[in-house]
Design a protein around this nucleic acid. Structure first.
Length: 302
DNA sequence: TGCCAGGGCGCCG
DNA sequence: CGGCGCCATGGC
């Protein structure tokens, strides 16, 4: 039995509040882990949900909610079958066999390794395939910053500069601004929106992206992670870590291995003799995300 | 008050 | 190339 979602297995119905939704059979899936593991900043938990776990937000200009009561079933609210096929299936990574990846990683580590414990704890995580431009900006903003404030800044940029999305629940939300919209806003405006020293970086990213100087097509096609990172690092304020995050969370390059302060501490603690991400190829980035979740979990998630 | 946050830049040796 | 101070801001 394959763990990959197969077309036709989904069920269309209405959600508890009357919105159209689809129910997807999944395996060892966690909405909570996926949307609270620091890869995506535009989804918030719905506290009043009748589901055990529900997150809502905007992606690709669409309002959507992801909910579940158990690991074998995912509910996508404000969606239908064709919408799922066109947008959410790829976004959620449901075209990928994550249990096979997790199994592959676990065979490459000793059973007492922190990596196995992390993969055990955080195995419900899926690496999202987010919009590359939005991912680029999100991780420029992330530098020397914490997750709650990153979310605030991104929400503020969207509200002030992004296109309004009139949602089916009656609330107006906002899409993340396009590169053109961000460039038109200007560096001063970006600074006023509390981006701090990152304003000039965001503006440079917007200018380059809006003028075709970021070769998304090349990065999409290439398997050369170094070359892809080099292209992204041409943007001011983009270094190895931000580039790795963009490649992992925006382009689905599952071997990209971002090293932030959490991962650095973790590797120093658990691998004092040194650590080689290459040993986890070609899914080192997935292992990294398990580890990131694990470290934040045992610290009590600040 | 000082430290830290999904870092990178500029400068120095 | 490796190390280090700095960059804005807000929460603890």
């Amino acid at each position: 039995m394959s763990a990959i979602y197969t077309s036709g297995a989904l069920e269309e119905k209405n959600s508890y509040d009357g919105l159209p939704c689809v129910v997807i059979p999944v395996h060892n899936y966690s909405v909570g882990q996926t949307f609270d593991c620091g890869q995506c900043f535009r989804f918030d938990r719905v506290e009043s949900s009748p589901y055990l776990c529900e997150y809502e937000g905007i992606a690709f200009g669409k309002y959507v909610r992801f909910a579940q009561n158990y690991p074998g079933e995912l509910v996508i609210i404000n969606s239908n079958a064709s919408d799922f096929e066109a947008v959410w299936k790829r976004f959620l990574g449901l075209d990928t066999d994550w249990e096979a990846i997790r199994g592959d990683l676990m065979t490459k580590c000793t059973s007492d390794s922190v990596m196995v414990r992390a993969a055990d704890l955080a195995g419900g995580i899926r690496i999202l395939r987010q919009d590359p431009w939005e991912t680029l900006c999100s991780f420029i903003i992330s530098q020397n910053n914490n997750i709650p404030r990153i979310k605030k800044i991104i929400a503020s940029l969207s509200k002030n500069l992004g296109r309004p999305v009139h949602c089916s629940d009656g609330v107006t939300r906002y899409a993340f601004p396009t590169d053109t919209e961000l460039e038109a806003a200007g560096e001063d405006m970006l600074y006023q929106l509390k981006t701090g020293f990152r304003a000039k970086y965001l503006y440079d990213a917007a200018r380059r992206s809006a003028n075709g100087l970021v070769d998304y097509g090349f990065i999409e096609e290439s398997d050369d992670l170094e070359e892809c990172a080099d292209r992204l690092c041409e943007i001011k304020g983009v270094g190895p870590k931000v580039a790795a995050c963009v490649l992992l969370f925006g382009f689905g390059k599952l071997n990209a291995f971002p090293v932030d302060v959490w991962i650095k501490r973790s590797l120093e603690r658990h691998f004092p003799c040194g650590f080689e991400p290459a040993g986890l190829s070609p899914y080192a980035g997935v292992a990294q995300q398990y580890l990131f979740y694990y470290e934040r979990y045992i610290e009590g998630r600040s």
